[in-house]
Nucleic acid binder design. Structure first.
Lengths: 203, 203
DNA sequence: AGCTGTGAACATATTCACAGCC
DNA sequence: GGCTGTGAATATGTTCACAGCT
């Protein structure tokens, strides 16, 4: 499946879930309109899941949700850890979208002894020293880094050493990981800079 | 300039700024190594800024930073507003990377009267009713949405009506805006779902 | 010798446009 | 008539590989 398609499946899923239940089916054009993409893109993307649409009618919403879920691996349980209990870590721990999606925060960690023990959305902040043991115990596959930049690389090292295979990094620094570990990098400054580039262009 | 290149310029800038100042120049290979991309990509990308590298030597770091900054429009002032003073809004208001980059938070807003007046990193949370007036007064071009999903569309409408040309949306919902407004959408669930897809594939 | 800048080759992604089915 | 599924065409992005300069 093309990377670009994988990156859009979550979008389709989100749109499908937010759609009013007036109809049990949805056409590529309708989904495209909500997702703000083209209908040809929707059809191509969904065709990678197999031919489940009905000509003249569209796709069955529930079936489509299920197919996307299965493809994205959301039918299984994904225990995650959040390292860094600042505002961002707290925001993510509180994030609602987890419930239905198989993600489960099994631990929130901080290096600051002052923060250890604080409650964050039902999670008691734990000392980073507990990280490795918890990762192994819960079989954590995804780690989220919300530490300051200065601690991001060390955190990534510890996560990968403990067996985490995927990292979502919110610290504004590029982390190095072994070749078999996947990293996605989300950075506010980057997003703003991209926006300001296009803002200047359109002036 | 290709979109893909624009999206990487902030990455190069970040890497350049974090580099030790042992040398005043940097080769495409060295920058590529830090940024975790290929050196050919770096050279192609930088060639869109003009031919400023020196064969046999590399690029002058300071000059390169300046060029990227100029290209991204970071030499001008970008007043931004943050709508939604929850954990995420607070995290963004506190975000350090703003200082050198021309972004300046001129207001943090919340619809919840309980939150209005709270201090968030030196910003007193204001009522959303003040949004339009503040946007116009400060000439805000970029708005950041960190509201709950339910308020995101209305917030986008108000921002665009007030004249904001670019929106960074952290709410897990696709917002509709006029054709001349740019939106970037950052969503935790999307990122996690992409990671879990590849995690399943590699199992 | 070392490194950039860049055409040419290749790979990926998007869009078109229409046959095929309901 | 409406809508999918998909080859073909196009556009975008990446990599190669090397001439050209210091």
């Amino acid at each position: 499946m093309p990377k670009a398609t994988v990156a859009r499946l979550p979008l389709y899923l989100q749109c499908l879930e937010l759609m009013p239940e007036t109809s049990s089916t949805v056409s590529s054009a309708a989904l495209a309109d909500v997702a703000r993409v083209t209908s040809a893109k929707v059809r191509k993307d969904l065709s990678y899941l197999g031919s489940h649409g009905v000509r003249g009618v569209g796709y069955d919403k529930d079936q489509l949700c299920l197919l996307i879920r299965r493809e994205l691996g959301l039918t299984q349980d994904w225990p995650v850890v959040i390292v860094g209990a600042g505002n961002l870590g707290s925001a993510l721990a509180n994030y609602g979208g987890f419930g239905s999606s198989g993600y489960r925060v099994v631990g929130v960690y901080d290096a600051d002894a002052e923060k250890v023990g604080n409650r964050v959305d039902g999670h008691q902040v734990r000392a980073v020293d507990d990280l490795e043991a918890d990762v192994e115990r819960h079989g954590v596959a995804i780690g989220i880094i919300t530490t300051p930049s200065s601690a991001a690389q060390e955190t990534a090292d510890r996560l990968t050493a403990a067996g985490v295979g995927s990292i979502l990094n919110f610290a504004p620094v590029v982390v190095r990981v072994p070749a078999d570990v996947r990293v996605r990098h989300v950075d506010l400054a980057t997003e703003l800079q991209i926006l300001s580039y296009y803002s200047v262009q359109s002036q």
